[in-house]
Design a protein around this nucleic acid. Structure first.
Ligand SMILES: [Mn+2]
Ligand SMILES: [Mn+2]
Ligand SMILES: [Mn+2]
Ligand SMILES: [Mn+2]
Lengths: 220, 220
DNA sequence: ATATATTTTTAGACTAATCTAAATTTAGTT
DNA sequence: AACTAAATTTAGATTAGTCTAAAAATATAT
């Protein structure tokens, strides 16, 4: 049974929502993510359940089946490989790739994606630091914390971002923060949890909302 | 007014049919090409006419408006650039690219296609020898004849194919015939119009249906 | 010129994906 | 336990794209 583009987008949304909690995903949460009405979501959930892509308990919520998870992860693999292609080969910046990758992720051709993977030299992470699932749907998890959880006077490496919006990425560009950047936390203001960091020799004051959207790991 | 994927495919079909004759394109011809019923085509023709993409005279047929022609040519440009990408960068053979390009041609991103064009070094022809329209919809026409029209004892260069089906292209591969190949016509059998050619030192007998699907130009 | 065949359009129906409005279920609060 | 608020589902309608069957227009042949 073939999966439509719309169904693929629902599976991806459910997958991403599932990353944030172990509970069943609610109709409203999906509706918000997909930008559709809850009634439309209910209709789609029935279809996905018929196709054994999700387990659906009326009024309770949904979880992906293994089949559904593999389908979602395959789309995410394609999305992230295309983002690498756009940045590495076609001079896109990391804030320009997402919309195009949203289209390219639905192209159906196993050979295309495997050849692309090889052509890009089997990248492990996309331009935003997110891991690229392998052919079997395995995802390499690295332990990382948000910059808001960082310890004073410790140096970290930026390994990813949570918010991938163009506005946020442009903010990071402005302060020369990118994947691989060395960041030292100098001070934390207890009142609003803003932090002062050192990045490329300059100090930058950063609100908590910013620092919670940046992933870092200790610089060993 | 945005154009749907389906509308794009109709415009492309009408464009290609229009290349073969100066007359208006019939509903049935479009139906055959799109592989849909004539009644479905009629419905779509009304939509395309509403959007000023075609001129439609009931019971008479259609022609593309300038707006429609430019839209069609833009899709063909994308299709052919993607075909070059697949062959030049991703190890696809010329008989494998068409189906994937049919999907990729609908991706909407001017930056993507312009960067791809530059990345491929501004190719002028696709893997089947078809010209790639430029950004302004201009198409470079080269004078070429079909191999069936070739003169005995003259050497030609293969510059394209008419049929791009996998079966036909594999036949050409079998006899080492590709874009750029030198072909000398040795003999023509008047009975069935089959020809004997020399290609890479070997002689090959070829039926008229094959030779009418190969474009050549004189080797000057 | 009339009958027949072909082509094209219209009428009515179907599926996928969406919506609004109403009904139902669940959760929260006295 | 009963009431209210929030979340979810159902009912019915809409749009894009398709189909079959029937009607209308055009082309062909006697
Ligand atoms: Mn993305
Ligand atoms: Mn990404
Ligand atoms: Mn093609
Ligand atoms: Mn081609």
């Amino acid at each position: 049974m073939l999966i439509t583009l719309t169904e693929e987008n629902y599976l991806k949304a459910i997958y991403h929502l599932g990353q944030k909690s172990d509970k069943e995903i609610s109709t409203n949460a999906i509706a918000e993510k997909i930008e559709a009405k809850a009634s439309s979501v209910t209709d789609m959930l029935k279809k996905l359940a018929d196709k054994k892509l999700i387990s659906y308990r009326k009024y309770k919520g949904v979880t992906l089946t293994e089949k559904g998870r593999l389908t979602a992860v395959d789309i995410i693999r394609k999305h992230r490989l295309w983002e690498v292609f756009l940045v590495d080969k076609l001079n896109f910046s990391w804030d320009e790739v997402h919309e195009v990758a949203e289209q390219l992720e639905h192209i159906k051709s196993p050979k295309l994606i495997n050849e692309l993977d090889a052509y890009l030299d089997f990248p492990t992470h996309d331009p935003h630091g997110d891991p690229i699932p392998d052919k079997n749907g395995q995802i390499q998890r690295t332990d990382k914390i948000t910059l808001s959880q960082a310890v004073i006077n410790q140096t970290y490496i930026c390994v990813g971002v949570i918010d991938s919006s163009s506005d946020f990425l442009k903010y990071l560009d402005k302060y020369n923060i990118g994947i691989g950047s060395e960041i030292t936390v100098l001070e934390r203001e207890e009142f609003d949890q803003s932090i002062t960091i050192e990045i490329k020799g300059k100090t930058v004051v950063m609100s908590k909302i910013i620092s919670t959207n940046i992933y870092v790991k200790k610089n060993i």
